[in-house]
């Protein structure tokens, strides 16, 4: 595996004697999208603020491309593009003027590069309008454009799906996947809603009360051995239910045109074969990846802000 793009080493933050972040240890690798998931107040923004040097680190360190954000700020931060909390820009300037402003702060960003990022996030049309008139979705995109100006190897987006409609979320997902897969960027995306980031992440770390309680690969959740709810859409649910109950000794539920049963991954082909052999028409098979969702809901249920 390649060297980590970012390393968190025993990262802690105490504010007024109150531990907010209680020791985070994890790595983020080039080309992966890391979901940073946790309920409101869990400490996602605080962690991100420490990653980019906005907040002092009480204990531990953050290494970016091997450089410490504490002791080697300039060398570390130049690899990072970020949005922290809301994508706030100067409302009285146009989108382009905002980008030019940030471009001036880093040597070597050409006019072409500015146009490139504008095109990448699809803001060509409103780019010469004042940002004060942008919708939240447009500001989110401008925020991403701003973060990408200097071709960072790490992109940090704090709740980028907040306030976006499903099509906006889909679009953000597309940029993020492209960046990770084509440009080998390490992307960190925080969210308090699993459903909004699940599909864009390779790995998800769950944070609660300032501690990481689980890090899961999104693909892992379909383990061979794990039981998942399998939804099968059929033309005749009654016959399907009977057939499967007889053959597999499983409890089968019905829901509208679906039958639902609990099965391991390697059982699914046999189930389908058995249905086909009875001449039942199958319109769809859907595996609900319950484990992560359940784990998350379980956690979110008793997150207390101490």
């Amino acid at each position: 595996m390649s060297n980590p793009a970012m390393q968190l080493i025993g990262l802690k933050k105490t504010i007024r004697n109150k531990p907010i972040i209680k020791g985070l240890d994890f790595n983020i690798y080039p080309g992966e999208v890391f979901g940073f998931l946790g309920p409101n107040g869990a400490g996602k923004t605080t962690t991100i603020r420490m990653m980019v040097g906005l907040m002092k680190i009480t204990e531990g360190d953050v290494l970016i491309e091997g450089k410490s954000i504490k002791t080697d700020f300039k060398e570390a931060i130049k690899h990072v593009g970020a949005i922290v909390e809301n994508p706030e820009m100067y409302p009285f300037m146009t989108g382009r003027k905002n980008l030019e402003h940030y471009a001036r702060m880093i040597p070597g960003i050409s006019k072409e590069r500015i146009n490139e990022v504008i095109a990448l996030v699809g803001l060509e049309k409103p780019i010469n309008e004042k940002v004060g008139r942008y919708s939240l979705g447009m500001r989110q995109r401008l925020g991403i454009a701003q973060a990408l100006l200097h071709k960072p190897s790490i992109l940090i987006l704090d709740e980028p799906t907040n306030g976006l409609d499903p099509s906006g979320i889909r679009e953000i997902r597309r940029y993020i996947r492209d960046l990770a897969e084509q440009e080998n960027v390490a992307v960190i995306v925080s969210s308090h809603l699993l459903s909004e980031i699940e599909l864009m992440c390779d790995r998800i770390g769950i944070i609660k009360n300032g501690e990481i309680i689980a890090i899961n690969s999104v693909n892992d959740t379909m383990e061979q051995t794990e039981l998942n709810d399998v939804y099968i859409e059929l033309d005749n649910v009654q016959i399907g239910k009977q057939q499967l109950e007889q053959q597999f000794d499983k409890e089968v539920r019905m829901e509208k045109d679906n039958i639902i049963l609990s099965a391991k991954k390697d059982e699914i082909p046999q189930i389908i074969k058995s249905l086909v052999s009875e001449n039942i028409n199958i319109y769809g098979v859907y595996v609900k990846r319950s484990s992560l969702e359940d784990k998350f809901l379980e956690l979110i249920g008793d997150n207390t802000i101490e």
Binding site: L54, V84, P91, M105, I106
Partner: peptide, 14 residues
Amino acid sequence: KWGTIKLLLIRPAS
């Protein structure tokens, strides 16, 4: 007030 301080301070300028 504008929240832009965050974007200002995460650049390679001390």
